[in-house]
Amino acid sequence: MNLLELRRVSHWYRPGEASRPALRDVSLLIAPNEVVAVVGESGCGKTTLGKLVAGLYSPSAGEILFEDQPLRSLQGRNKKHYRRSVQLVHQDPYASLNPAVTIGDTIAPALVHHGLARRHNAGVAAARALGAVGLDATPEFLDRYPHQLSGGQRQRVAIARAVSLEPSLVVADEATSMLDVSVRVAVLDLLLSLKQHRELAYLFISHDFGVVRYFARAGRIIVMLYGVVVEEGPTEQLIANPLHPYTVLLLQSVPVPDPARNEQRRRDQLPLVLGGAPPERGCVFSNRCPFATEVCRTTTPPRVEAGLGHKVRCWSPRAALDAGRSTQLSHST
């Protein structure tokens, strides 16, 4: 059984207009207990994808299925089951928690609504949920307000709210990018341990390839640009042998905590061209790609299968592979 499936999903924020879609013809499968990471620059559609999966919007075209049932057709109990099973953790724990609501009341009502706790023992259930994410679940803590917590504690509360509903899929949209360095890894490790113990799957959205490699090491990566999936594959495979020039550009542009290697990598970087609007025709990267030829500018590239679930939309994936090699992306020391 597939946990979640996107079938040729496109989405426009202003339907009817000739505006370009936020998502274009995206197909995706997420299996139970799988980690799928989505990477791309601002505006690539990764957040839209997360919101569609979490059911905040309905797609303008195409179909999303949860446990093989189309979301559009879900009603009553089935709809409630989906709502509980797919949870969202947002980027900013300063914005995602209601400042006027205590921590206990942030977590307990959903537990009651979904029948995971009774009203009279909801506080105990909320405390248990907070304990599961490593928070000190005293009655005083339940009575605190978000402003009395640190950023790391707030994000743990947001995670507790999501996982306490026993979801099967958590959409984490830049969930650790606002956290301090010393806390970030602890929260990533927490999410990974929850995956192990609760059979969770993640749709992990981030623009930071370093964090993605760490989090999705046993999973898959999807690279998006202008609403199009340009490359996807198993994490280590995609990072070691990137086949799309845009993936190479992203990989090369992330600095690493090593001055000597940064300097060395800088010498072989692909030129950085930031795009305004995507090209009207052809490959979405063709106006920024150093390897683009005539065919790239006129015709949408087909999806090429490179084995082991590694797929790329590019007319000349070989060029990217060589460029990636020259910057030693494939070396791992």
Binding site: R184, L188, G210, V211, R213, Y214, R217, I239, L329, S332
Partner: peptide
């Protein structure tokens, strides 16, 4: 504590 894209983590 900094994940690096060059390392397996």
């Amino acid at each position: 504590a900094v994940p690096s894209v060059l390392e397996d983590g």
